[in-house]
Amino acid sequence: MLDALSYDFMQQALAASLLASIACGVIGTLVVVNRLVFLAGGVSHAAYGGVGLAFHYGWPVLPSAIGFSVASSMLMAGVALKRPEKADTAIGVLWAAGMAFGIILIDLTPGYKADLMSFLFGSILAVPLTDLYLMAALDAALLAMVALCHQTLLVTSFDREFAEARGLPVRTAHYLVVGMTAVGVVMLIRVVGLVLVMALLTIPPFIAARSARSLPSMMAAATAWSTVFCVGGLALAYRWDVTSGAAIIAVASAGFMAVSGAGALRRAIGRRNPQ
């Protein structure tokens, strides 16, 4: 098994796992505590519209996808802020519309067809070195941003009304969280695929939240869990020759169920033997 580590592609896959886990741990924690999971799903799917635009007009893919998803995320964030009761519907519409728009544009483009499957599942085993550097830069920018405004993020995430009454920039903080999510998610999709991004954005923070005592510790624990799932999934993929992204999600889902089950068991025992 350990001989796998001697392959270049495996080393790069592990590096990509760690870098993606850091981004997912940080963004995922903010997404989960702000209840923005559905919005993150909408943003990441709508990004396919940007991919379609890029292919149809021959624009560079990454900037187009980021521009498209930041624009659609600001739209969703605005609705979530001003008409919270309509946010669910608006996100659902943009989610579907962005994706359909991308597919139609790619259908209308002659010649090379971008592969929808690689958008959905990515390929963590074939990450070019330049993408690793790009992800390292994204992680550094994210960590710097979160460290700089962590008190604003803490107060506005915990109790928005109180933050507003203390004169904190509640709206700016909301758009910042959504914008960071949009940029981060698009960069990660390129590397590991949409489905894996959604899994790593939600499952590790959920498990981390059960024992974390602060936002930074939740981010650290989510990153650690995410790395464990990635390494476990890659090992499974190597051993049985199955799709790496799906193997990582399988391991993460098993972890999710094990932790939820253990929690339910502990509560049941606690009810039977009250202190």
């Binding site: 505590v33 700089l148 405004c149 008190q151 604003t152 803490l154 107060v155 995430s157 915990f158 109790d159 928005r160 009304e161 109180f162 933050a163 203390r166 004169g167 904190l168 920039p169 700016t172 903080a173 910042l176 939240a209 974390a212 005592r213 602060s214 936002l215 510790s217 939740m218």
Partner: peptide, 30 residues
């Protein structure tokens, strides 16, 4: 309006009361 499942201790909730003495998105408020 506050989140019950939020990873924060009682002490840190109370410390948040010092927020707003300094303005701005960046930097420390307390």
């Amino acid at each position: 309006t506050a989140r019950l499942d939020f990873p924060v201790t009682v002490l840190d909730v109370v410390l948040m009361g010092l927020a707003g003495t300094r303005r701005g998105l960046l930097g420390r408020h307390w």
